[in-house]
């Protein structure tokens, strides 16, 4: 199976180790993984700001770069959902790549149907169910709905030896990032982040983990400013621990 690796811009610049973990994880499953070097961004920052038109060109070039792969895998639920659900509308036509773009968790859980992982991570973690992961990709059952409960991220994390997984109170309330929302509505955004952090820390976990580096970056920035005692790690890094 030929996999195109999509490493969204902020992961590329700020959290390259998340990209490395994703790559190693996919390789350990015996997959053929390629990283098209001309990739940049999914376009979501412009779209959420009200300028999705400005991402037309990059949407076309994303499709061009990735359409030849069996799957496009990204360690980011929010960017994945933007590609899958918004690219065709922005482009004004079906996008071959968009239909094959999946988040790492979806890929491992639903497509590779991974049943065990060699990873060890003897720590307590609090799981951050990020909004687009929950409500757009369906990585877990949204608490608003009356449907059978599930959580694909938790299923995968629990394959890791030594780990204890907690979920915070209000397990899928937004952390307040929202792209430009965090700049435009600084008061509410920061308050949402502080509230979320306290709920994560309240579980007694050492780490906050999730499938979206953007939410983690937001919370990390707020935690650092207030010197809150908690560490951050992307799900991909835990699932690949020891590889």
């Amino acid at each position: 199976m030929k996999i195109g690796l999509f490493i969204p811009c902020y992961v590329d610049a700020l959290y390259p180790e998340v990209g490395v973990s994703t790559y190693k994880l996919l390789r350990s499953l015996g997959l053929d993984v390629y990283y098209p070097e001309k990739q940049t961004c999914c376009g979501q920052p412009m779209g959420n700001a009200g300028f999705q038109d400005k991402s037309r060109k990059l949407v076309e070039s994303f499709d061009e770069l990735f359409k030849g792969f069996d799957y496009v895998v990204a360690p980011s639920a929010s960017c994945t959902s933007y590609v899958r659900f918004f690219h065709p509308e922005i482009a004004g036509h079906e996008c071959e790549a968009a239909g094959k773009t999946v988040d790492l968790v979806e890929f491992l859980h639903d497509i590779m149907k991974v049943k065990s992982l060699p990873a060890k991570f003897p720590h307590k973690v609090s799981l951050h169910n990020s909004c687009h992961g929950v409500r757009e990709l369906g990585l877990s059952s949204p608490t608003e709905r009356n449907i059978p409960k599930f959580n694909k991220i938790k299923d995968l994390l629990q394959m890791v030896e030594g780990i204890t997984v907690f979920e915070p109170e209000r397990p899928d309330e937004c952390c307040g990032f929202g792209g430009m929302f965090s700049i435009e509505e600084i008061g509410v955004s920061t308050k949402m982040g502080i509230d979320k952090l306290h709920r994560h820390i309240g579980t007694g976990a050492e780490f906050i983990t999730g499938p979206d580096s953007s939410c983690l970056m937001h919370m990390q920035g707020i935690a650092a400013k207030r010197k809150l005692p908690v560490k951050f790690i992307h799900v991909a890094q835990i699932l690949s621990a020891g590889l």
Partner: peptide, 22 residues
């Protein structure tokens, strides 16, 4: 500012994924 009203600045990695790949 205004990002730093609520946040510390994120740190850019010494080498991006692009560079690591290369």
């Amino acid at each position: 500012s205004p990002w730093t009203y609520g946040h510390s600045m994120p740190e850019f990695a010494k080498k991006s994924f692009h560079q690591l790949w290369k």
